[in-house]
Design a protein around this nucleic acid. Structure first.
Length: 568
RNA sequence: CGGGGUGUAGCUCAGCUUGGUAGAGCGCUGCCUUCGGGAGGCAGAGGCCGGAGGUUCGAAUCCUCUCACCCCGACCA
């Protein structure tokens, strides 16, 4: 490809509304343009990268025995009503009516469609297990799209669905998909981590997320330094403290704490440490009442864990002062577990401290020297907090570390969630109808592009891993337009490179060298040849990898072999 | 949906307070010079100042309503 034939659209300045680096660089490099909030046009350069991701994903899915299909983006409401998700999915589901006023939606995911297909086509256990996938545009009407294509409303996703007669068979395919995902992200040149995850909206039991590690990642992931253990923060289990609770040494007393509401304020005011305090959060219960959640002052509530507790309203909803004041007798900021009349859940760590401080349930007053089982009963403790850096991993292998991640893949064991409600079954060896067991496996193909940039860039622009680069090699001639001799040599060399199967972009624009260097670095081409008249005289060409700091001269005669070795 | 913000040239932004012929830099077109790290000069093209109402002799500027987009939170590949 020659730049003169490519819609190059590099920008020196990024549009002001682009915040994160991948979004800015994708705009500046001319990969994408925004059409509406969370909706983008892919320009030739961007599409090339997207296709590279697709190709790797497709190859590995096929290799793992997946069969590619293509389902419709537009889906009839009936199937969603059948699974119960027409109501449940909420406003994120983009609903549309056709001219006959029949209801449809633009598919955010395809469990209903695939289950419908499979229940029609699969009759016998002999056809199982089966793994069907597609690479297709999805639409989710996100409350807040952001970060360019990272969280777009319309995006490209690879979604695979497997069907099984038994749970053992599902386990097998699940493990295989886990391995396949690792291969895919490794081939794409990404630094990633598979973590245990909450299964969220899609439902099901076991689930792993694949995260590309990047500081700008939206997810907090947690991993053990000494084992494979890794989990999403919302899922990471906190261990029950090993040491038993220290004995009580202080007498309970009440102190005035006027206008001290936050744990931080309180600790400064009373000269105590947050880990010696309890914080008591009041949430709504399923029946409209109140429930108290008690945590150590230095710990954070994990809302995913909390809303799974019996009686707690889901989604987790904090009570406001209007409800708390009449129910408890004081406002937020002075609440404590002593003599509370509402149900109380106590976190494991909160139940393991002695001589603690907490709210007195009287405005402007706190209690000091409070002890479980002396001043108040200790209920069975539960895990409702986020783990902290340095906590012991749940597998006992060592301390936990934190990292930021971008979720690019997610695999689920769905079980019979959809197959049961949609009556997808087939006959087993005994001729008995069995409800199919399902797994599903997603990769955010377009998101991978943004994630790769987040992880691979410098102050000059994108630094593509070879597998993702829109071109493998940039060929930059110096002042070609002033020298017929050079022009002919460059063109001949360019044709030779192409004949050798190298994906090369020749910058044949009549630009000054600085402009060409800057553009090729911005769009992140991994390898670069600079061809000049002076090199022509000496029979040499200049080579520089995108990640190199220095040029090196190599013989023109062996240049093709040289680059082929680097592309292998 | 709650909170905050922005809409003026392709991009980045001034102008608005105090109403009076729409601006700069970059980019784009042409010519000349320059030519190994985003060159210089000259000449150009390009705007319903997001939209609709209103106030006024006169509105980018003041008022009202609307639409779009961005940022922070809950959601997710």
């Amino acid at each position: 490809m020659k730049t003169s034939q490519l819609l190059t659209a590099t920008l020196r300045e990024a549009p002001a509304d682009a915040e994160i680096i991948s979004h800015r660089l994708m705009l500046r490099a001319g990969m994408i343009r925004q059409l509406a909030a969370g909706i983008y046009t892919w320009l030739p350069l961007g599409l090339r990268v997207l296709r590279k991701v697709e190709a790797v994903v497709r190859e590995e899915m096929n290799h793992a025995g997946g069969q590619e299909i293509q389902m419709s983006a537009i889906q009839p409401a009936e199937l969603w009503q059948e699974s119960g998700r027409w109501e449940k999915y909420g406003p994120e589901l983009l609903r549309i009516n056709d001219r006959h006023d029949r209801q449809f939606c633009f598919g955010p995911t395809h469990e209903e469609i695939i289950t419908d297909l499979v229940r029609r086509e699969i009759r016998s256990y002999k056809q199982l297990p089966i793994n069907l996938y597609q690479i297709q545009t999805k639409f989710r009407d996100e409350i807040r799209p952001r970060f360019g294509i990272m969280r777009a409303r319309e995006f490209l996703m690879k979604d695979a669905y497997s069907f099984h007669l038994s749970d053992a068979s599902l386990q097998e395919t699940y493990q295989q998909m886990h391995a396949t995902y690792s291969t895919i992200f490794t081939r794409l040149g990404l630094n990633f981590r598979a973590v245990m995850a909450d299964s969220g909206n899609i439902g099901g039991s076991q689930s792993h997320e694949f995260h590309v590690l990047a500081d700008s990642g939206e997810d907090q992931i947690v991993f053990s330094e000494n084992s494979d253990y890794a989990a999403n923060l919302e899922q990471a289990e906190a261990l029950i403290p090993e040491q038993s609770r220290p004995p009580a040494t202080l007498a309970k007393e009440m102190v005035d704490t006027p206008n001290q509401h936050s744990i931080e304020d309180l600790c400064t005011f009373l000269h105590i440490k947050p880990e010696q305090c309890l914080k008591t959060l009041i949430v709504k219960s399923e029946d409209g009442g109140l429930i108290a959640l008690v945590l150590r002052g230095d710990h954070e509530l994990n809302s995913i864990k909390a809303e799974k507790l019996a009686g707690v309203m889901s989604p987790l909803t904090f009570a406001d002062n209007a409800q708390i004041k009449p129910g408890i007798g004081c406002e937020v900021g002075s609440i404590g577990p002593v003599a509370l009349t509402i149900p109380v859940y106590v976190d494991h760590s909160a139940g393991n401290i002695s001589d603690f401080a907490c709210g007195a349930n009287i405005d402007g007053k706190h209690l000091l020297g409070v002890n479980w089982e002396r001043d108040l009963p200790l209920p069975t403790t539960v895990d409702i907090r986020n783990v902290c850096e340095g906590d012991m991993a749940v597998d006992g292998s060592g301390q936990l570390s934190f990292a930021r991640g971008i979720e690019v893949g997610h695999i689920f064991q769905l079980g019979t969630k959809y197959s049961a409600s949609m009556k997808a079954n087939c006959l087993d060896e005994q001729g008995k109808a069995v409800t199919l067991t399902m797994g599903c496996y997603g990769i955010g193909v377009s998101r991978v592009v943004a994630a790769a940039i987040e992880q691979n860039h410098d102050d000059k622009g994108i630094v593509w891993p070879l597998a993702l680069a829109p071109f493998q090699l940039a060929l930059i001639p110096i002042n070609m337009h002033k020298s017929v001799r050079l022009r002919e040599a460059v063109m001949a060399f360019y044709e030779e490179l192409r004949a050798a199967g190298i994906d090369v972009i020749l910058d044949d624009r009549q630009e000054r060298p600085g402009v060409m260097f800057a553009d090729m670095e911005l769009i992140g081409i991994p390898h670069r040849f600079v061809f000049s008249e002076r090199g022509l005289d000496s029979g040499e060409i200049e080579y520089k990898a995108r990640t190199d700091t220095e040029n090196q001269n190599i013989s023109l005669a062996t240049a093709i072999q040289f680059i082929q070795e680097r592309l292998a």
